[in-house]
């Protein structure tokens, strides 16, 4: 398994593929998207449920069908292709868990995420987004292992902070502070503090 470094050129190519699926219903382009994303989506699902291969295949299928059906809604000004696919995968995971009784049943991922007021999208936002993406990519590689580990538990394994604390045998406060420290290192300044 060779680990690929996502670069700007590759993101540009993925973006073109999504646009071809949207405009031309291009199955070849879709096939290329499958080749790129299916192995990552499978990995994402297995990160939460190791050994659950059927569940993983189901997630791959659900997300990629969404890519086919929603390609025309993709807006490069708002999210790069990886971010778009990640959010689709996250939402599919939530709805899968919801259907299987791990979450409250009345509320869908669409209620939670899709209705959030859209931000402006344009050349300026796209430039800013690329800059942030680069900053996050560079920063993640330099994070202390213990901070990266907590971020992976939350984002990829879908653990709550309590679950992460339990698994790592850490106090909850330490998990919270590792998240905050990681964000600071990534130069993500979040001003909100809970009162």
């Amino acid at each position: 398994m060779v680990k690929k470094q996502t670069n700007i050129t590759e993101l540009g190519h993925l973006q073109e593929l999504i646009e071809q699926v949207a405009k031309l219903r291009d199955r070849q382009a879709f096939s290329s998207l499958f080749e790129h994303y299916a192995p990552l989506l499978k990995s994402y699902s297995l990160a939460r449920d190791p050994g659950a291969y059927l569940v993983a295949d189901e997630l791959v299928q659900e997300v990629l069908i969404k890519v086919w059906n929603k390609a025309h809604l993709y807006d490069a000004g708002k999210a790069n292709p990886n971010t778009w696919i990640f959010t689709l995968a996250r939402n599919c995971r939530i709805d899968y868990l919801r259907r299987n009784g791990r979450f409250g049943n009345e509320v869908t991922s669409e209620d939670i995420f899709d209705h959030i007021e859209d931000e402006q999208s344009g050349p300026f936002e796209q430039t800013l987004q690329k800059k942030t993406s680069q900053q996050v990519q560079n920063g993640l590689g330099k994070l202390p292992a213990e901070q990266a580990q907590v971020l992976r538990k939350i984002y990829m394994e879908g653990k709550t902070q309590q679950e992460a604390a339990l698994e790592l045998s850490l106090p909850l406060g330490t998990v919270k502070s590792r998240i905050r420290l990681a964000l600071q290192k990534l130069e993500i300044i979040i001003r909100g503090s809970e009162k």
């Binding site: 680990k3 990995s43 942030t132 993406s133 996050v136 993640l140 993500i188």
Partner: peptide, 17 residues
């Protein structure tokens, strides 16, 4: 929007299966 990019990057760094 920024935090989604953290998820996005961790996602693309996953070992492909």
């Amino acid at each position: 929007t920024t935090l989604n990019q953290v998820g996005s990057q961790l996602f693309s760094d996953l070992p492909p299966m």
